[in-house]
Design a protein around this nucleic acid. Structure first.
Length: 226
DNA sequence: GCGTGATCATGA
DNA sequence: TCATGATCACGC
């Protein structure tokens, strides 16, 4: 697939937000045309397509490195699929969860806290009955967790990491955590990575990722439009 | 396999 | 109907 070079990366937060807000109201088909991309008929085999399209338009630089999308600005870009009611249709993947070498890890210095410190949220229509090319981009917002959100995130993170340290990763389900979940994040159920077993011995288990629950992202979106 | 971008699809 | 657990694509 031939695509045009991405737009230059914004130099300031204001410039990034401004550019994101210019995209509001446009369709993914229009944005794809500008980028020289072809919209897929659906997202079954192109789950990251919308995110990569927006990365192109906003000049995100990180690629697949475990750092914020806009390194200089310390800002993470997240597209979020929304329903006709403006509520999230999916949970939001944040980052991979460490399963070994986790003793002594602190929330304050964790990767997930760094990733969520400043996020540019770009809502995009996500109902499956809307053709991908006809879906509209919504109004972008820059977000940092408020005190309550920080507290909720830290509490969930500590609970989940405690279980990982204790070798209970395989008893963690998506129901643990109020706002943050731990779920598989893998190519398939045969992809395995190392973790601690119940007796401290090494085991092989599915890689996991941290995800924000829908209710949490719904509230932060709503908070912005109040 | 890992980390990025995420959404799919089935069981409850 | 809906969230959980599973899955898809890509660069390296």
């Amino acid at each position: 697939m031939i695509i045009k070079p991405m737009l230059p990366t914004p130099k300031t937060e204001a410039e990034l937000l401004n550019r994101a807000q210019q995209l509001a109201g446009m369709t993914l088909g229009e944005l794809a045309y500008i980028a020289g991309m072809i919209p897929p008929p659906d997202l079954k085999r192109d789950k990251g397509w919308v995110g990569q399209l927006l990365e192109w338009h906003l000049g995100a630089t990180a690629g697949s490195k475990p750092v914020p999308d806009f390194i200089e600005l310390g800002i993470e870009l997240k597209t979020i699929p929304i329903s006709y009611q403006g509520k999230p249709l999916e949970t939001t993947f944040v980052c991979v969860a460490p399963l070994i070498g986790v003793q002594g890890l602190q929330w304050q210095t964790s990767h997930i806290r760094q990733k969520l410190a400043r996020v540019l949220w770009v809502p995009v229509e996500g109902e499956r009955d809307i053709p991908v090319e006809d879906r509209h981009v919504g109004s972008a917002l820059l977000w940092s967790p408020n005190q309550q959100e920080q507290q909720q995130l830290q509490q969930d993170w500590e609970e989940l990491m405690d279980m990982i340290v204790l070798g209970q990763v395989e008893s963690i389900t998506a129901r643990h955590g109020e706002v943050l979940q731990l779920r598989p994040k893998a190519a398939n159920s045969k992809a395995l990575t190392e973790a601690y077993g119940a007796n401290g011995q090494p085991i092989k288990t599915l890689p996991r990722g941290f995800y924000l629950k829908k209710q949490f992202t719904a509230q932060l979106l709503q908070r912005h439009f109040i």
